[in-house]
Amino acid sequence: MLNLEDLYRILRTGHVQAQGIVDTVPVPLLVLDSALCIQSANRAFFRTFKVERYETIGKHIYDLGDGQWDIAELRLLLTDVIPKTRAIIEYKVEHDFPGVGPRTMLVTAHTVFSPDDVSTTMLLSFVDATERTHREAEFEVRFGELRHRMKNLLGLVRALANQTRTEGVSGEEYRDAFLGRLTAIIDANEQGFIGGGDGNLEKLVVRTLEPFAASPDAITIDPGPPVPLDPKQLMSLGLALHELATNALKYGALSKASGQVHVRWVVEEAGGRLLRLIWSESGGPGVSPPVSTGYGTQLIQFAVAYDLGGKVEPTYATTGFKVEMAIPLTGTTQQRLKAGGKDGPDRGR
């Protein structure tokens, strides 16, 4: 038989053990009685909220720490929500705690009914989610930016699809023309990612013109000085080169077995760097200036003039079509990098 003295002893050691266990829990814990007075608290609680044991135990929760727990959201939780349910998981409370600062706390509450007693106690735990909330907010911003870029990219695809000619062409021809343009953009975009650095002109020219060379000497490339390009320049120049090659294949030098395309470039340093890219065709059919500007030609104009701030000067010599593109390198790349433009360092375009 257990006498009263033994029972007290067990309860006392039991309590000490329970306190020991509670103290090892890294999350701040409070035990409240039904009147919302603090019966017990663990070390993490004292440490986190910078309070002492003597000023905590026995106090009403709203009087604790000069009333720092008298929070409207917590009052609502304790008086309205808790009585209706046995447990609340991670209820978010935002509060500026004196001496601790603004914090986002996730409060979890459990009501515990003691079997021998009509009274109830409540276990409250607090997880400091301030850092997590910051990270989540940051993620939201980045995610929003990503979504915005994605929509922009979809708009671009839509524009290409909408503007690829449909009059007098078969479905297959339309598909090939559209996919050709899309692939040029995808390839150019991809080069901005490879190696994490900028792409460069030589790689872009080689890669873009590769599919158009029916024989090894149909297209010759005479590389000039190295020209690093940012993603925007890569995409615009890539598409412009693709359009030039497409036109050459349809109407120009590449439409004949004997025809040749020659690409070279120079960089002028006088007053800001200027890239001059020269595309010349020879050995093709006779050339005459077109009566109307095709979409491909307008695309080249837009890509170079609108997007890169450059100039396109075509010459329709009888020996073959020739075009010179003058593109300022200082006014775009450098300025954009200096301004830390919307693409940022991760080159998300």
């Binding site: 524009a159 909408n162 503007q163 609108y306 997007d307």
Partner: peptide, 23 residues
Amino acid sequence: DEYLIAMDLKFMLERRGWRVIGP
């Protein structure tokens, strides 16, 4: 600022009887 989208909007509206300033 995106030239392809600018062109798209221009052509779309010109086909529908608008006179485009810019883009």
